[in-house]
Amino acid sequence: MFSNPMVCWSCRHTVAPQDHFCPSCHRIQPLEEEINYFQFLSLGDRMNPVPGDLEREFHRLSRLFHPDYYNLRSPEERKFSLERSSFLNGAYRTVRDPVMRARYRLKLEGFNVDEERGKTPPDLLMEVFEINEQLEELSQAENRRDLTQASQLRDKLLGQAVRMKERLRVLDSELAEVFKSWDASLDDGVMPELQRQQLVARMHELLSYRSYIRNLVEDIEEKDREWE
């Protein structure tokens, strides 16, 4: 399967890694491990797809790969259709969401971005301290069955959550800016390695910051659900 140069499993004609179908016999090809989601969705190296275009491409490729259309074909073709359509579904799910898209890019660039909470960003220290204190006070008020204070704290925390969500929106638009710069740089020709590194670093920074805030919001919302 990974022999070089690649040939069609059926007619032995030469096949390029990005070919979904054999250029000669038009049969569906097995999935190459090296291909990434961006290439698969015909985005090349781009980071900022037009949402409508992305959906159209997803639908176009779905029509080409979906197992429903391979029911009468050979076992090999059915297997490859399953491989390609499940890969396509994963690719679309990841790429259509900006945060998952950025995380996937970072993974391709060799970063291991997991959901874990890292160090508290310095400019958030005060607010994190305050939120944690209020969460703690809320638990205590609940234990004392002091409903008046609990309700006040809850309102305060929900106010914090609203502010945090506003921050998330700002971060999202900053992330969108990075995607734009990335694509603009590609449009100019080959992206200089230094610039690529800077943009990747910026994405990494935004994502860590974002997941930190996201976790805080979730803590508050979880507490709020408990309270109800």
């Binding site: 499940s86 579904n89 994963g90 799910r93």
Partner: peptide
């Protein structure tokens, strides 16, 4: 709510 076929 992942589209199927789906793999991991």
């Amino acid at each position: 709510n992942s589209t199927i076929p789906a793999s991991a």
